[in-house]
Amino acid sequence: MTAMLADRPAHEDGRPSAIDATRHLRRFDLKTRILHGVIMVTFLGLAATGMPLLFSDAPWGRWLARVFGGFQGAGLVHRFLGAVLLAAVVWHVGEVLWRAFVRGEKGLLWGPTSMVPQPKDFVDFYQQMRWFFHLGSQPRFEQFTYWEKFDYWAVLWGTALMGAAGLVLWFPQAASRILPGWMFNVALFVHGAEATLAIGFIFVVHFFNGHLRPGKFPMDLVWFTGSVTDHELREERAAQYDRLVRAGDLDRLAVPPPTGSLVRRGYVLGTAGLTLGVGLILLILYAVLR
């Protein structure tokens, strides 16, 4: 490893030769982690309260609805959580746009730190495929990988679409002033289809990519602590690491390591979320395959 790093030009940029690989570096600030937490809690709740309707013919549909006090209770919780999720995502988009256009912050809408897909992402994907088949080394990822960007845009797209459909279904009389009634049919269908996509994607693909895959199992705690070790960042996001070193910004990201109690709480909450999500997936599989 050290031999490989020594080959990189970055090493000649005057980086301290003796860096502490176990030090922690900031990856997600508090706002971002709270946003992930809000999405996580509301998404789990939305899935659990919406699935009885989506799978009304499944034997568990009735009891899952009754957990929330029947369809009216489940509907109330679902609308509340939906409103919170929608508000959180609208706030986030607003903040990004404000930072980009009002404050003129660079790197949000384009560039290596942007969530917008870059040409490099397609190259990364191709290289990752080659790595899957032992045809090359793993790509040197930037701050956000292609699958992370996909997750991100899926949340934005999904929330926008499901939020819009949800609002139509929530306020049908008001919606019917601008939309014909058959749009309720479309809204319900889209809400359910998009939910199927989102639930399947988050509780299987995102859980695997972000948390459950070998090397991360049982979870990547960065969602809770917000920091990764120097070693981890260098291994997993080599391009970002090198860029930060070149710019001399790496040391500014150094943060104290998370305390033991923070790590424990992260694992407890994360395990609860993962278990709930996987449990809901098992219910769906049972409903579909029985």
């Binding site: 490989m4 899957f132 090359g136 080394s137 299987v204 693909v205 695997f208």
Partner: peptide, 29 residues
Amino acid sequence: FGLHSLLWFRRSWRNGHGTASHEKDGGRA
């Protein structure tokens, strides 16, 4: 993404649960 995850699982599982593996495959690239 199912295929993507499966391939990733197969690759990283055989890799001894490792995350990155620049060294091991660097030579083959």
